[in-house]
Amino acid sequence: MSQSYDRGHIESFGRWTEFSAGMWAWVLHKFTGWVLIGYLFTHIAVLSTAIQGETMYNGTLQGLESLLIVRFMEVGLLAVAVFHILNGLRLLFVDLGLGLDAQDKSFYASLVVTGAIAIGSIPTFLGGF
């Protein structure tokens, strides 16, 4: 994706603001994808404490859960996953050739639903703290 030609400062002039819905969807899908693969590795690492025995496992999990920041990150993780799932469903429909005319609307819908679910989940995640 490198520029074949350098137009200096003029090239980058306002490009990002001119992205369309489908392009933002792509950017967010990549971004959430990177987060999720990162989480997958971390997740397995954390669970690996089970090998060192029950105390270690329970201690690690409860230790992490007692941190407010982790609770907030969990909300973020949920949002990221929900978006990735919803947009992934959108892309699956696109692959099947369904709803191509509404591809921008379905992207906005994914965003709204993601937001709603994330907000709605806050009490659950922060509860029992």
Partner: peptide
């Protein structure tokens, strides 16, 4: 693991 069993209450058992 987040809604049925809350993450904070998870134990190896």
């Amino acid at each position: 693991l987040h809604f049925v069993h809350h993450a904070a209450e998870i134990t190896l058992a």
